[in-house]
Design a protein around this nucleic acid. Structure first.
Lengths: 153, 153
DNA sequence: TGCCAATACCTGCATATACAGGTATATAGC
DNA sequence: GCTATATACCTGTATATGCAGGTATTGGCA
């Protein structure tokens, strides 16, 4: 029996119960709300936390390569980095070997902020796993991982 | 063996392989891109298609109730409806019994556009099911449905 | 050397998303 | 009827997202 959250009587005349994108968008809205509420006192969104965390493992990477890792348009990434840049959590540095490229670096301040934020993020993640079930969450991640592999651009 | 798309060597120092929101956002970006490419000739995004389709099953609904159905902030919905309003695919009508409320209606033009778009949407959905596997897609939908039920606001 | 195509990034525009705080209307108490 | 509160929606501001098209730099090739 498939799960059906809101729909009352309608037999899905629009076929939207079968639209993968609607399900994903809806779930993304709800989850973002939860993470963002937890992170708000730190002045970070979940997107920004994610960028800091990824960058801490890829220091010096260029915008293009970073965007590809994130399955994100490079122009989107450029703009998503701006609030972090304004808070002096990340910096852009010209690559002397290729002056077109900009190497991204976490600042000391950025590493500090990330260290503060990590347990807050973990609390949000834990809350979600409590509500949804650890196994279901793991299955969801695996499912999304397969989807991204099979739809790789 | 859990699926791991991009990460090369790093043992996930940031814990992000376990962040549900990152997985969802990433997958949403990729899927939106696919649907939007299909729908582009019709002048619709996947979000807009979804609003038309849902509205066709809930004609006359108010902004607040519609937003709740969509797990979306009412102010977001108001603005998402604007491009459709400009294209005269939907209209707002004052409810005579409660002049605060605005009843949303598809126009004839809106119903036409939806009829044109439906097979295009179906083609995108079909492509995704071909690539990802019908069973995996169904499991994903069920998984997201459960998540939304258990995290209902 | 000098030009051209490819590359790495950016700006302009449009949509998608939500919070804070505003206006207009309705309803409950009195 | 009057007022206080609640409700339904909107605007201002900020971030998130991606496409079209631009600039600067690099590298290949004549």
């Amino acid at each position: 029996m498939p799960a059906r959250p809101a729909a009352k009587a309608s037999p899905d005349p629009a076929g939207l119960l079968g639209c993968s994108c609607m399900w994903l968008r809806k779930a993304t809205r709800r989850l973002s709300q939860i993470y963002d509420q937890h992170l708000e006192p730190l002045g970070l969104t979940i997107t920004q936390y994610g960028l800091l965390a990824r960058l801490s493992a890829a220091d010096g990477i260029g915008v293009g390569a970073f965007a590809e890792q994130l399955v994100m348009d490079p122009t989107t990434l450029t703009r998503n980095l701006r609030p972090l840049q304004r808070q002096r959590l990340v910096v852009f540095a010209r690559d002397p070997r290729d002056r077109r490229s900009r190497m991204l670096h976490l600042t000391a301040r950025g590493r500090e902020r990330l260290a503060e934020a990590r347990p807050v993020w973990a609390k949000a993640q834990h809350q979600i796993e409590e509500s949804v079930g650890r196994a279901d969450v793991a299955a969801l991640h695996a499912s999304l991982g397969r989807l991204l592999e099979r739809l790789a651009a």
